[in-house]
């Protein structure tokens, strides 16, 4: 399924605190090329913090994060921005630009970062992406006119416009109805197949994890307590907190 040798992300001993709240307490994690890695954990355990550290939105207190062979600790803003172009970040609340139409939302990162594109090329790319997320008719709509699921899809389409190698999904199914969750899970898998991305999916939704993840990593008390396939992590779980996490999602 993925190349064991080729690691696109290596996280080593990462610690992050907010005042007295020690969120990450020495985290180690690898993302291999072509895999979907799901990071599970309760709300407030630092899952989103971890991916924000990866794109430089936050700075770790200790430890190293290496992405596509580059240690992000030592990068200047220009180099970090170059790296950011290879990483797609789908935000929990979609983060679509309110004052722009769907078309403008998708065009914005493209025209800013890719020079000398003709209007025809931009249109083709935008329309192609909207087709692939199944929302071609929303092109001239404003974000306020879209449903939660549609916003998530447009948010994912916007990240794909720069053809990233790595996708980071922050709670992609949070706040959505079950049917829309299935659509989003399918879209995450479709992105992996069509764009050949490696992804980290942050979620506390085990259905999403099971459907989209090649491997799971469970974050408890600021450290990964279990890493492996869904069956390895949950079927053979001895940690009562991991078991209770599974029971809560599937029994309740």
């Amino acid at each position: 399924m993925h190349s064991e040798d080729e690691k696109v992300v290596e996280i080593r001993g990462v610690k992050k605190s907010f005042d007295e709240n020690h969120v990450l307490r020495g985290v180690d994690l690898d993302l291999h090329k072509g895999e979907n890695l799901v990071v599970l954990g309760k709300s407030g355990t630092g899952k989103s913090v971890l991916i924000k550290l990866m794109v430089g939105l936050l700075k770790q207190d200790e430890g190293t994060i290496t992405i596509l062979g580059k240690n992000t600790n030592n990068l200047k803003l220009k180099e970090l921005n170059k790296l950011r172009l290879k990483i797609g970040f789908a935000f929990q609340a979609s983060a679509l630009y309110d004052s722009m139409t769907v078309r403008e939302n998708l065009e914005f990162p493209l025209v800013r970062n890719v020079k000398n594109l003709t209007r025809k090329e931009i249109n083709k790319k935008v329309e192609g992406l909207l087709d692939s997320v199944g929302l071609p008719k929303t092109i001239n709509q404003m974000p306020a006119e879209l449903s939660g699921g549609q916003k998530k899809r447009i948010g994912i389409a916007r990240t794909l416009i720069l053809e990233p190698e790595i996708m980071l999904y922050d709670e992609p199914t949070a706040g959505l109805d079950p049917t829309t969750c299935i659509d989003i899970n399918n879209l995450i898998n479709q992105v992996k197949e069509e764009y050949n991305t490696s992804s980290i999916v942050i979620t506390h939704d085990l259905t999403c994890a099971k459907v989209t993840g090649d491997r799971m990593a469970v974050l408890i008390d600021g450290q990964f307590q279990a890493v492996g396939t869904f069956e390895e992590v949950f079927a053979q779980a001895t940690n009562p907190r991991i078991k209770s996490f599974y029971d809560y999602n599937f029994i309740q």
């Binding site: 924000k52 794109v55 430089g56 939105l57 921005n81 170059k82 950011r84 172009l85 990483i87 970040f89 935000f91 929990q92 609340a93 983060a95 679509l96 630009y97 309110d98 004052s99 914005f108 990162p109 800013r112 970062n113 916007r158 720069l162």
Partner: peptide, 20 residues
């Protein structure tokens, strides 16, 4: 209000991760 709302809805972060 406009920039504040962009900040709290992560639109400013979205620009930053798009290298804008």
């Amino acid at each position: 209000a406009e920039i504040g709302s962009m900040k709290v809805t992560e639109q400013i972060d979205a620009m930053e991760v798009s290298a804008i």
